[in-house]
Design a protein around this nucleic acid. Sequence first.
DNA 1: CTATCATGTAAGTACTCACTCACTATATAC
DNA 2: GTATATAGTGAGTGAGTACTTACATGATAG
Lengths: 205, 205
Amino acid sequence: MTTGKRVRKSAEERKFEIVTAALKLADKSGPDRVTTETLADAVGLTHAGLFRHFPRKISIWEAVAEYIGEQMEIRWARAERTNSDAPDTRLRELLLSQLRLIRTFPAIPALLFSRELQIENEQLRKDFGVLMKRFHERLKNSIQDAQAEKIFRADLSADDTAYLLISLIQGLTVRWSVSAHRFSLLKEGERLIDLQLHSLRLPRK
Amino acid sequence: MTTGKRVRKSAEERKFEIVTAALKLADKSGPDRVTTETLADAVGLTHAGLFRHFPRKISIWEAVAEYIGEQMEIRWARAERTNSDAPDTRLRELLLSQLRLIRTFPAIPALLFSRELQIENEQLRKDFGVLMKRFHERLKNSIQDAQAEKIFRADLSADDTAYLLISLIQGLTVRWSVSAHRFSLLKEGERLIDLQLHSLRLPRK
DNA sequence: CTATCATGTAAGTACTCACTCACTATATAC
DNA sequence: GTATATAGTGAGTGAGTACTTACATGATAG
């Protein structure tokens, strides 16, 4: 739907609008359903105008991935900064920050499996792989800290435990997507995270 | 690639060929990339011939989903039958059977997020939801049995624990897909499953 | 041996979509 | 105020793709 009169904006501003609109549309109708036409429409631009800002459609998704990556790093850093002393709550916050990001941009899980990422552009797939590796590293560090401080059991591999926690997030996210977001990602996530973290704690009796 | 001479086969046989070829192609190039053209080619049929067996493209995916559903139920039942006495190994086998199915048909995770399922056909999405619910039910039963037999701790919600285990499978599967199948799904899965199940056991000292 | 029907084909149609090109309007620098 | 660069438009094009139609052929029943 073309809404009223077209406005002229700076390239930087437009690019950002296009990126966020792409994320919004991807959530609404699936990443592969975002056509340059509907996307242009969503930002109040003609089809051709879009190509002034991005030479190819794929470069839009590249910008989207970059934006998501930045957002993740920002939120992880914030979660760690505000809980620098207690490794277990730091871990918990890291996990919750990821859930909050996905709640804000629910297209992220679908993007991981979209043909744009999986097939069309190997670089993008690798970039997401690197992101996940960084997240894993951060989780692992907090787990090891918690083990060192005798908060967590030391007999569990920090590496594998971090994978279990990532799986928790991803699995929950999958279920949330397949259920068409019919439950609260955050509430369900908190409960499962606490259950999982509980089983990691040293039994102090 | 059109391979040699065309053979005439029974409709039933062709339908099965089409379904399995669709799964194979979906793995190779993503579900949304499976065109009626390439699919017809893969089974050694013309484009038009495909439409003799399925009236619309979407009905092919419906048949695929049905096939996957059948396969899951068969494998779950087998896993339970051969481990009917020990609830913890039964649980383990249930989880591994799911991983084996995904290894056999690696397109399954991508299918969950394909536009065919998520957008085009709400029924299919619901069908998969029902399947996951059934799997959850089976896991939960084994967990409760193990709790009743004092193998697992009784202070953990069997319901949530089952969700944790499903998450483990789904998260692992996501990671496997994003990594372009660069590790052994079964080996990694066994390790993580055992780690998770370990934390559920009653500490018997 | 032949009629019949299920399985298959060749050649389209209609439509969607990424991308282009020649041109226009507007902000800003001087 | 005018030149210039930047943002935007209208009207295409070609490639891809689901689905159709009219016709062909091989298996099987009587």
